[in-house]
């Protein structure tokens, strides 16, 4: 891996993000657009109050990964087709690549990093491990966030229903039988 003075690419992005976050907000009013064209968005991410000032075109996905260093949420297709970037906004699952950060002022966002209870894995995370619900793991954060919403919505009553409700999440390694088994197990544990 190429490193410059010990700073990895991810560390570099982290520094940039941290620097940007210290820029004072011009008016302090949430929802205001600064003269620079950037917008300030205040929201709760995994339980922590967060304020970001961004270009209005920035997606929730890019803000999570490149500004908040929450890289658990993956960028697969950037067009809503693969589901790898699924997170919860105000309790509902959305694809973060098609969600503009600027529309989320006041929203509450939960990502894969916010699912576990400290060092204790969420029942779905544990079940994915026990049932081999992944191979390469790239789609897994999106699969788990999607599955958590499906179970919370009560939409995981039968195998057919789980398959239908999970149809927005693709796994190129085709770990579908393991994913199905994991959701079935977690469904019981989460009730």
């Amino acid at each position: 891996m190429t490193q410059y003075e010990g700073i990895t690419r991810r560390g570099m992005l982290g520094l940039v993000g941290a620097a940007a976050a210290t820029v004072p907000l011009d008016s302090g009013a949430a929802g205001a657009q600064a003269a620079s064209g950037e917008v300030t968005v205040r929201m709760t991410v995994n339980g922590s109050a967060t304020s970001l000032t961004v270009d209005p075109r920035v997606t929730l996905l890019d803000a999570l990964r490149e500004r908040l260093q929450l890289t658990g949420t993956k960028k697969g297709c950037d067009r809503g087709q693969c589901g790898a970037c699924t997170v919860h906004v105000d309790g509902r699952r959305v694809v973060s690549c098609l969600t503009l950060l600027a529309t989320l002022d006041g929203a509450s966002v939960t990502t894969i990093e916010g699912l576990a209870d400290g060092d204790r894995l969420h029942p779905l995370q544990q079940a994915f491990i026990e049932h081999d619900g992944f191979q390469c793991g790239f789609c897994t954060p999106g699969q788990i966030m999607s599955a958590a919403a499906v179970i919370a919505e009560g939409g995981a009553r039968t195998d057919a229903e789980i398959r239908e409700q999970m149809s927005g999440n693709i796994c190129r390694c085709s770990a579908y039988p393991g994913i199905l088994a994991a959701i079935r197990q977690a469904r019981t544990e989460m009730r």
């Binding site: 950037d78 067009r79 690549c97 098609l98």
Partner: peptide, 22 residues
């Protein structure tokens, strides 16, 4: 509104609107 159509065009730079109306 939901952005599920407009955002694809923005992400792939197929469209550069001068303003967005949320």
């Amino acid at each position: 509104a939901g952005g599920t159509d407009v955002m694809v065009e923005l992400n792939f730079d197929h469209r550069r609107p001068s303003a967005l109306l949320d």
